[in-house]
Amino acid sequence: MFPLRRSLILGIVCATVLTCAAQVRVPATVQAGSGTTVQASGSGSTMLYLFGPGGALKREVQRGNIEISGQELKVAGRYTVIVDGDSASFFVTAAPLQKIAFVAHPSRVPAAASRAVQGSAFLFDGFQNLVLTPIPVTFRLAVEGDNGEERRTSSRDGVAWVQLNSGRRSGPAHFVVTSGAIQVRRIVQQVAADPCSIRMSALRAPDGNILVETAPVQDCSGNAVPDGTIVTFTSVDAAGRSAVDARIKRGIARAELPASRSATLSVAAGVVLGNEIHWGGGQ
């Protein structure tokens, strides 16, 4: 109620005193970072107020064409101009695409996994405003020397996303998003999946102990299981059970188990079991 009464009083007063009233006219939209002109009718000086999402301005101005600089209109959103109790609103919209925030997940992925690599691209202008107009976006995931996978899409409300299969080869895959001249790259480490099979051999060491060693441990796509992976060798004989958690080194795990006349040797990595060897007796 109060603003209405105020406008009414102001209207009556300004009908008699021409210079104090001002009708404010603004463009409907302004691009972020570009200046604009506010038209306030009448003449003489007055105070201009501008409220927006990124600022609040108070300035003594001459009625007529009032310049507002691009610096004052960086943040996208609705701005309200107030001159002599009259007001008008306009929207600042995002400037052209300048930056992509690319959230890629995961940073490591097993090889040949379906829809396991996800990327979300958030498109920004140079002033941290989301660019809301639909823009073509291309995602590409490839290990060097591989064709990889590419997906083209269009952004919606400033976001584009993709879900891709990981490649069959292990290694650092380049996950790249491109839109116009802007390109952002992430590295997704494609790693070997679980070992496909573990083959172990055993021989007697000079001191009588049993030396056990695996063949190169690989996943089902032929990628070497990373060094440092735990491989557990176990020997069960009359004296009990002996176990060594060996680490794969240069693709192979090896360990020394205590000497035994007759033992059952087994090998496992995580929940994947390898072959079994009956040591001694018939061997």
């Binding site: 002996s242 060594v244 680490r247 360990a255």
Partner: peptide, 24 residues
């Protein structure tokens, strides 16, 4: 990745008080 520790000659036994223990 180191140290590597072997757990040798594990066996279920009884201790001096007749309780079950895993020794190695």
């Amino acid at each position: 990745a180191d140290p590597v520790m072997g757990v040798m000659h594990q066996a279920l036994n009884k201790d001096a008080r007749g309780h079950s223990v895993l020794k190695g």
